[in-house]
Design a protein around this nucleic acid. Sequence first.
DNA 1: CTCGCTATTGCAATAATGTTGCAACTGCAA
DNA 2: TTGCAGTTGCAACATTATTGCAATAGCGAG
Lengths: 141, 141
Amino acid sequence: MTHHATQTLLELGYRMTPQRTLVWDVLRQSGEHLTAEQICARVQEQFPHVNMSTVYRTLELLVELNLVKETCLGPSRRYYEVEEEVPHHHLVCEHCGKIVHIHDEDLGNLPRLLEREQGFVAEELTVFGHCLDCGGDHAHP
Amino acid sequence: MTHHATQTLLELGYRMTPQRTLVWDVLRQSGEHLTAEQICARVQEQFPHVNMSTVYRTLELLVELNLVKETCLGPSRRYYEVEEEVPHHHLVCEHCGKIVHIHDEDLGNLPRLLEREQGFVAEELTVFGHCLDCGGDHAHP
DNA sequence: CTCGCTATTGCAATAATGTTGCAACTGCAA
DNA sequence: TTGCAGTTGCAACATTATTGCAATAGCGAG
Ligand SMILES: [Mn+2]
Ligand SMILES: [Mn+2]
Ligand SMILES: [Zn+2]
Ligand SMILES: [Zn+2]
């Protein structure tokens, strides 16, 4: 576990445990969006007796401390990834499942428009649609 | 159940049943985003023995026929609403839970931007953030 | 209008995902 | 080294959704 996360935990009176280190390292090394179950499986490759409930509790803690981000990219499942310095948004291809990251500067004038017209402050957005490979022509190949 | 939905079902060889009529009518009359459980509760006010599994199966069918839209507005729950002619998108306030509809013309240049820069065809988008009442000033009151 | 076929339903069991109570264990600070 | 509060594993539980199956009931044919 990097100095960053370790320090945050210890400063706040939490303890460093192998379980927490492993969950964090899995997320750092994968760089993907992982479900709790996927994280648990990868943790168990190195430490087989680690329990799902520990993984859930660890994720809950890391999310609370803003070290990990929880995202809903579809029904019935939560995905986790390391919280990055600069926030990002998601394009989700409904055909192949591919997920692409975009950043505030890719949003054009939408945030200003929503704030001006609706008084709504956009923080994170998810766009469902079809990616380049899956037919931008609406053909849903 | 309106002529519209009835006809679609019958044309395709499905049968009209009181259960299907009730689910459809609940969705039409509410105009809100309802969970399967809420729909079932309202159906049971008029027809108490209707079962949850029937509601789920009915919703699955109506979604498949594009009569109802299923939306994921957060983890752990699916919401249903009547599919409208003109598609819409959602602003979800993470503080008070309020959901606002916006339409394509409220999106500014985002769809064109995504298509041009990412080759991504946006179909439906969900924006998480904070509504007017819940402090556009990031104060999260 | 009646009949019969088969789509549909209710029910209970099961699945999938996440949460919690609790006794045993263990970081870590003194 | 030691003690204790934070943490874990486990099993039970909670919530949301799906499925197998026998009983029921639409609806088209006659
Ligand atoms: Mn992401
Ligand atoms: Mn809606
Ligand atoms: Zn795709
Ligand atoms: Zn609000």
